[in-house]
Simulated assay, not measured.
Amino acid sequence: MGNPPSPILLKLGAAIRRYRQAGGLTQAQLAQRVTYSEGWLSNLETGQLRPRREAVGSVEKALGLPGGALMDLYDLLMEETPPGWFRPWLEEERAATAFRSFEPMVVTGFLQQEEYARALLNGDEAAVAARLERQEILTREKPPTLRCVIDEMALYRQVGDAGVMRAQLEYLVSRVSPLITVQVVPAAVNPHRGGGFTLATVDGGEVAYVETAVRGVVTSNREDISVLSHTWESIRTFTMSQQESVEFIKRVVAERWT
C-alpha cells in the first residue's frame, strides 16, 4: 500500500521547483543557500517531506520571492487536518476489526482523554476534535478489539499537569474490558527501542501504521507486517499481565500523580 502525500504538499513542492528552475538554480545550489541537504530539498520538491515554517521562509527568501509566494501555500497546509499522509490510515482504521498497538512514550490515541490530547497536541482544537472522533469506533455497534501495550515510561512522562496525568491514567484503567486490554512493559526489559506502531486487521489481512520522526507510514507490505508482528510478539513476551498492569498503573497514580 502506498502512502500518498498531501495535495497541498505536492503543490508547495511543485511551486518551489518551478521558482528554482525559473531562477536558474540547481537543487544543490538552492540547498546550499538554505543550509539544508540536497536530499532534503529533493524530498520537499516531490512532496515527500512536510517542512517547518521557518524552512519554507528560508526557501522563499533564498529564491528572492515576494513575501507570501510560498508561505500562503504553507498556511493552507497547516490548516489541513488531518495531514494528507494520515488519511489512508483513517480509512483502514474505520474498517478494522482488531488492533494491536504499541506506544513507547504516550498513551495510545484510542484511549486519550480530551485534556491529555489537548496538552499533547499543543491546544490544536481541530486536531483534538479529530482524535476524539476517531475514538468513536470503539463504541460503535460492533466495535473492534483493541490490544494495547505501553512502555512504563508513558506513565511517567508528564503531559499537561499532574491532574491531567492522574485523570488520564485512571481513565486508562477504567477502559479495560474483554474488548480492550492495556498491558505495561517494563522499560528495563522492553526489547523494542523504536517508535510506536499499530497493526490493524482489515478484511482478514493486516495493515500497519508506523510512526517516524517526520510522518506516519501506512504499509501492508508482507515483509513489513512480518517484522512488526514479530516485534509485537517480542514486546508482549515481557509485558505484565492485565491484572498486574492495572495494579501497576494505579500505583503510579498514587505515587506520582496524586
Results as ranks from 00 to 15, higher is better:
57 G>P: 09
166 R>V: 01
114 E>G: 13
58 S>Q: 14
256 R>L: 12
46 T>N: 02
11 K>L: 08
8 I>Y: 04
77 L>P: 03
242 Q>M: 10
186 P>V: 10
36 Y>W: 12
163 G>F: 09
21 Q>G: 10
57 G>C: 08
160 G>K: 01
49 L>Q: 04
61 K>Q: 15
130 A>L: 08
52 R>V: 07
119 A>L: 06
51 P>L: 01
143 P>A: 00
217 V>M: 07
138 L>Q: 03
26 T>Q: 12
160 G>Q: 02
146 L>P: 00
177 S>H: 03
252 V>H: 03
255 E>C: 09
77 L>R: 11
91 E>F: 08
79 E>C: 13
210 V>H: 05
60 E>R: 04
92 E>Y: 07
255 E>Q: 12
51 P>Y: 09
25 L>F: 13
246 V>W: 06
175 R>W: 00
255 E>M: 13
244 E>M: 08
186 P>C: 03
97 T>P: 02
192 H>A: 11
10 L>E: 00
219 T>V: 02
41 L>Q: 03
208 A>Y: 02
33 R>I: 08
227 V>T: 05
43 N>Q: 15
224 D>Q: 08
89 W>G: 07
8 I>N: 05
238 F>M: 14
66 P>E: 10
190 N>F: 04
205 G>P: 05
178 P>C: 02
4 P>I: 04
97 T>V: 06
231 T>G: 03
237 T>R: 15
71 M>K: 11
13 G>F: 01
155 L>Q: 08
63 L>D: 06
223 E>R: 14
174 S>R: 05
83 P>Y: 12
212 T>S: 14
196 G>N: 02
58 S>A: 15
30 L>P: 10
84 G>N: 03
161 D>P: 02
38 E>C: 09
107 V>T: 02
242 Q>I: 11
49 L>M: 12
207 V>N: 00
229 S>P: 03
42 S>R: 08
31 A>I: 00
206 E>D: 09
21 Q>I: 09
206 E>P: 00
224 D>F: 05
104 P>T: 07
28 A>E: 13
226 S>W: 07
201 T>D: 05
208 A>K: 00
30 L>C: 08
43 N>D: 15
193 R>N: 14
88 P>R: 08
72 D>Q: 15
101 S>H: 11
161 D>R: 01
